[in-house]
Simulated scan of single mutants.
Amino acid sequence: MACEDDDTLGATHVIDPSGEVIIILQNANAPFAVWRASIQSSAAKKEDDTNEGIRIRVSAKHLILASPVFERALTGPWKESISLDQEGSTEITAENWDIEALLIFLRIIHCQFQFVPQEMSLELLAKFAVVADYYGCQAAVGFFSRIWVQDRIIPKTYSRDLILWLWVTWFFNLPDQFRDATSIAMSQCNGEIYPLGLPIPCAIIEQMNAVRKSSIQSLYCLLDGRRASLLHGERGCHFECRAMLYGTVSMHMHDNQLFWPGILGQSYEKSARSTETVRRPRWREPCADNSNTANNRRLHSCPDCNFNRLLGDVEQSVKGLKLQSFTA
């Protein structure tokens, strides 16, 4: 990507040598999708992040044709449009964009596909999608999702990368990948799911948090319901059996933080896995002839001692959301 210090308009990057517009990027490479509360050091910014801003020379016609945001700025009753009409050139200010993502975006809308990378990291892809989304160019760049997303190794655990991937799947309209990403997030997150400042629609985040909470609540209700059935004599074959199983389930719920509302502080996946590790109590009781000698006692066994039967099949993950539900 060309750099011309002697360009007549003072451009640092030149997309179109005869372009009439200078985009001045302020605060380039600002902290992006911060996972923790700490703010990235300014030292982590790239070398070309200067106080004066990065100047990029581009074509007004290409900007207007590609982006409704640029179209409004360059054809409406604004100073940028007036300057373009009267002086033949103008400046537009942008803020916080990653410079590499912005340049890739501008190359695409200027049809300079030979400069567009065939592969991008997930980080850069997410940054590019934020730029393209802001300028209203989802349709114009959608084709490249086939190149950048195919054969990508996607995150399998709840992490910052998973939220970046969730954003990418939404922006590029990838329903299968979106469903998988939301499933992992809702299954593995141990608290509120946050968009990290990404423009993921609020409806998606709200639905994910609601489904996560309701799924965990259903799991708790299953366990507490089984305890209640033992307490009220609906399960277990006699008093001792009910008492032993009730105590076992209660202790297991306590030891694994499965009581409400503490259960909300851990992931659905962890809680669901713990239902498979209930320790089966073992005790002996007299045989049918009521003889109480050591040789005439047997291990108690009844169907409800099988906790798989008592609790039933528990889904080990939360079903992902349908992208179509948010695009209608």
Rank of each mutant, 00 (worst) to 15 (best):
I56C: 13
P155G: 03
E71C: 14
S218V: 00
N173E: 13
C287L: 09
I22C: 06
Y268Q: 04
E4P: 02
D48V: 09
A185E: 05
N51Y: 10
A328Q: 13
G88T: 09
R152T: 15
D313C: 01
R235A: 09
G88A: 06
H238Y: 12
L124G: 03
H110M: 12
Q207N: 09
Y135F: 15
L323Y: 12
R242D: 01
A132T: 15
C202T: 14
S267L: 03
L63T: 10
P17Q: 14
C241V: 03
F32N: 03
E240M: 04
M253L: 03
L219R: 01
K45A: 13
A11P: 13
H62D: 15
E206Y: 14
L102C: 07
T182G: 06
Q266P: 05
T248W: 01
H232K: 03
T75V: 09
R160I: 01
A43S: 14
L124P: 01
T277W: 00
D49G: 05
M208W: 07
A73Q: 14
I104H: 08
R179A: 09
A228W: 00
A11D: 13
C221A: 09
Q86K: 08
V116D: 13
F178T: 07
N292G: 01
K46Q: 14
F105W: 14
A210S: 11
G236D: 02
I108H: 07
L102F: 15
E276W: 00
L106I: 10
L219F: 00
Q257D: 09
V168M: 02
R55G: 09
R227P: 01
N256R: 09
R297F: 02
E269R: 11
L103D: 10
M253W: 04
A2R: 14
W35V: 00
A328C: 04
V168A: 02
N96A: 04
